[in-house]
Simulated scan of single mutants.
Amino acid sequence: MTRDLDSSLLRTFVTVAETGAVGAAASRLARTQAAVSMQLRRLEEDLGQRLLDRSPRGVQLTEAGHLLLPYAHTILGASADARRALSAGQVSGTVRLGMLEDIAVGRLPRALRRFSIAYPRVALEIVVDGSVTLSKRLAEGALDVVVADPALVEAAPLLTWTQPLFWVGARGYGRDADEPLALVAFGGPCLWQQNVLTALRRAGIAWRIVCTSTSLPAVQSAVEAGLGVSVLLEGNIRSESMRILGRAENLPEAPTADFGLFMREAAGAQVAAVRTLQRFLCEELHLGFCESEPRVPSME
């Protein structure tokens, strides 16, 4: 008889995958590192698969880990959705949400669809743009909630968090150590890109930029075509056509990406809708508990 997967073990696995380190996951989950490691072992033993590669630099998902991750998100999301639907009450209003493309093409849009089902009286208006533009629209009052790079937003974030980036190449990619590393780069004000070049420079790795784009789908397509390698968030890796690169290709540790959650003060009937979305984002992005009546930073 097939056993159900333990949701507490899945939550630990997802948190470790998203933070890239057992210590960071333990802090987020309010558990000891030993307890987190034990739960990971229990899950691996239950599935009969090694899910994580461990090293002094942190952890990376194995092929089995990448396969499990979206299922883990679905299982945990369904449980949370049931609670939300039962407690939705009469929450209503319109919320204008701005977010980066890197977030918009990951799993968050699917989660927002679930939000709309759980809270049918809340209308979402979503804007996808760069951090600088989102910052301006937030200051002008054209957006209520924003997820963007805190270094490029002229406001105090309600919350900040960091997600690991991964070196990726096409499925058939093989690096020629005698040739400069072919790099697919993000254009525009992308802080990640500068960190990537700094990491390569420090590692003594020569590179050449073969493609530059401000469009995430264009970067993904260039990587899939085998033009070069890039760094992506976990949710933007197309596992059917890409593979994660690392020590075997003598690449340095990939940088991390910083994000912030920003809000404007809501008024009237909109307050409940904005705060409901804020709590939802905290839960979906695993940012810990958000108070039902948080202090919204001043936009002045």
Rank of each mutant, 00 (worst) to 15 (best):
G288D: 06
R121D: 09
E265P: 10
V146D: 05
L287Y: 00
R11K: 13
E300V: 14
R110F: 00
M1V: 08
L245M: 01
T198G: 12
L10M: 07
A151C: 08
A225P: 00
I103P: 12
T2H: 06
V231A: 12
C190T: 13
A111R: 01
E45R: 08
V231L: 12
P164A: 13
V91Y: 01
T212Q: 09
G174S: 09
S92Q: 05
A148I: 12
I103Y: 14
R31C: 13
D176P: 01
E293Y: 15
E101W: 15
L281M: 06
M38T: 15
G235E: 07
P252T: 11
L277I: 11
G141Q: 04
M1E: 14
M38H: 03
V127C: 05
L287T: 01
D258S: 06
R171D: 01
W161Y: 07
Q194I: 05
L261H: 11
N195A: 05
M263E: 07
E224S: 05
T214F: 03
E265D: 11
L43I: 06
S221E: 13
L158Q: 04
A26P: 06
S131E: 14
P120N: 03
P255D: 07
I205P: 02
T256A: 07
D178W: 08
A218H: 01
T19W: 14
A266T: 14
V271A: 07
A24V: 04
A151S: 14
P255W: 09
T276V: 15
I209N: 00
L232G: 04
R50W: 03
R121E: 10
G226C: 08
D46C: 10
I237N: 00
G204L: 15
V14M: 13
R201W: 09
F115V: 09
S92C: 11
D129P: 05
R57F: 13
E234P: 00
M38A: 15
R114I: 00
